[in-house]
Every structure is written in C-alpha cells, then in structure tokens.
Computed example of a mutant assay.
Amino acid sequence: MHPAARRATAEGIGTATLVAAVVGSGIMATRLTADVGLQLLINAVATVGALAVLIWSLGPISGAHFNPAVTLVATARAEMRRSEAGLYIAAQILGALLGAVVAHVMFELPAVTLATKQRTGLGQWLGEIVATAGLLALIGALTRTGLGRLGPALVPAWIGAAYFFTSSTSFANPAVTIGRAITDSFSGIAPGDVPGFIVAQLLGAALGAALTEVFYPRAGTPEPLDLPAPVHDHQP
C-alpha cells in the first residue's frame, strides 16, 4: 500500500472506531440507566478509553489526527502537504459516518437515523470553541516540547474533562460532529446544528494554534531579551 494511502486508512479506521465508541457507549448508557449524569459518565469513560488506545496504536502510523481541525492546523503550519491533508479529511469524515453506522448495527438499530437532538446557541458554541482551542493548544505543546509520547494520556484526559466542564460536552471535532448527525441517540446532534458547531470548532482550532505560537514558538524563533530597565543618571 502507498504510504499516503496507508496513513489515510489509519485515519479513517481510527475516526470510525472513535465514533463507534462515542455512539455505541451512548446507546448502551441509555439502556443501562435513566440517570442522565451516569449516562454522560459512561459515554465519557468509553470515549476516553478508546481514544487513548487509538492514539497509542495509530499515532506512529498517521499521527492520530482523527480530526479535520488538527489536520487543517498541521497543513497551515506546512507540516503536511495539502494533497495528503485532503485524503486525511475525506478519510476522517467517511470514517465518522461509518462508525455511527457500525454502532447502530451492533445494537440492532437502523443503520442511519437522523438526529433530532438540538444542540445550538451561544453557550454551546462557546463550549466548542473552548474545547477545541484547548485540544489544539495541548497538541501544539506536546509537539513543540518533544513530549508527543504523552499524547495517549493527556489528549484523552482533556477530552474527558471537557465532557463535563463545557456546555457542549466537547465534540471538538468536525468529522465526529458530522458522524453524530446520523444517530438519533444519546450522542446525536441535529443536522441543522452541525454547521454552527463546525464553525465554532474551527475558530477554536485557530485560537489553540495561535496560543501554541505564543507559548511554544518554533525553534529558531528569537525570544525577546529580558533586559533590566535602563538606569538614568540625573547628575547635574
């Protein structure tokens, strides 16, 4: 298999598995309990666990983006070619849709059921900006400090935390958002609300990327010198 195709395949499979975990655990949670808080906890724990495994296992192959926002930022930084970025994003979106279908089939539901759950409004959009900005800033920090090996632990930790402290429950991923539009289950989002979430996610990605440049500038970028204030001699 051509290396670019191999990497894109890893992205598709990784994103599909991630969405299957999100959607499947949401379906399971509603079958296990009527407690919404416990449902969200089950959903979050399953997502965090799956994401950790996927980053660890597929990171060495494709970088484990599983997220068009991550791919777009890498492309803007000239860290990957536009042609390959296009393959990544296509694979991520197709994988997300496939993951939702697989989750439905596992639980003997119709393969596709358009979501009816409304997720919209300034508060939820702000939640997506915060969740995505934090995610991209974290990835940037790990990359610039050479600590990418901590990604399988820290990236899921951020997503898991953001499940509970953001108003949107931290989608933070345009492909996952699209995949969740075809499931009328606990984790679904009405198709009409998808564009607002994606715009918020892209704004958050840009903010997170900017924070990376502020706090972790590229090697070779000169830092401002911390010089003492000049002493003025006021002798007559």
Rank of each mutant, 00 (worst) to 15 (best):
T177H: 05
F66R: 13
E128K: 13
A69E: 00
G151T: 08
G140V: 14
R77Q: 15
L109M: 08
L94T: 04
L122C: 02
L97H: 13
L97G: 12
S170Q: 10
S168Q: 08
A76K: 05
G146P: 07
V105P: 01
V112A: 10
W125M: 15
T143M: 03
A153N: 13
T116L: 01
V73H: 01
T177V: 04
G140K: 12
V176M: 10
T145R: 07
W125S: 15
T143S: 01
L138W: 09
A76L: 08
T116D: 11
M106P: 00
G179K: 10
P156Q: 13
P152F: 12
F66Q: 07
Q124Y: 09
A90S: 08
T143H: 05
L150R: 02
I89K: 12
I139D: 11
S167I: 10
R81D: 11
A141T: 05
V130A: 04
T166E: 10
R82K: 14
G86C: 13
R119S: 15
E108L: 15
S167C: 07
A161Q: 01
V73G: 02
T169N: 13
P156F: 11
P152I: 05
G86W: 05
L150A: 12
A96V: 03
T169D: 11
Y88E: 06
S168W: 06
F107Q: 13
K117A: 13
A69L: 04
F164D: 01
Q118R: 15
L136R: 04
L138R: 00
G99D: 00
L72G: 13
F66H: 12
L114V: 07
V70Y: 00
L150T: 14
G151K: 06
I159A: 13
L114P: 09
A162Q: 01
G86T: 09
L109R: 09
G99C: 02
S170P: 04
N173L: 15
S167F: 09
P68I: 01
L136Q: 02
Q92Y: 06
